[in-house]
Structures are given as C-alpha cells and as structure tokens.
Amino acid sequence: MLGVALSLSIVFLALEHIAVWQERPEYELLTSPWMSKILLVLTILLAANIPADFIYFEF
C-alpha cells in the first residue's frame, strides 16, 4: 500500500507544481469538477482501514 500511497502523493504534488508553474490558484486542478469525482472514488476505494489520529489535534 505504501507504493500506491507514494505514487498518488507524487502525482498530487506534481499537480500542485503544475498549477503554480502555470500561475493558476494552487488547488485549481485538484478541485476541478472531474478531479473531485476521481478523488471521491479513490477515497472510497483506497481509504485506510484504520484512520490515524489528526496530528494537529495534539497541539
């Protein structure tokens, strides 16, 4: 699963880079209508079975 999560992370960060490079709002590509649907499907399919605690709740 780490391989999948890392591959998706790299694609995710690459999309941020592309948006910044094209001088668009940072999350424009990641919040586009088609991308939102893809992310929702991926969340349903690949969400971790055991959710980790939110890090910033400890702060």
């Binding site: 999560a5 919040t31 992310l39 929702l40």
Partner: peptide, 23 residues
C-alpha cells in the same frame, strides 16, 4: 458544489494519502 470539491480534496488527502502513509 464548491464545498463538496474541497471536502473531496480534504478527504482524499487525509484518508487515502495521510492515513495510508502513517503506519
């Protein structure tokens, strides 16, 4: 529509990326 898009992005970041890397 806009709210759901941010929610979808946040859930993907947290539940798919963050939580799968965490262990």
């Amino acid at each position: 529509d806009i709210g759901m898009r941010w929610l979808s992005l946040g859930m993907f970041m947290k539940f798919v990326l963050g939580d799968n890397i965490s262990p």
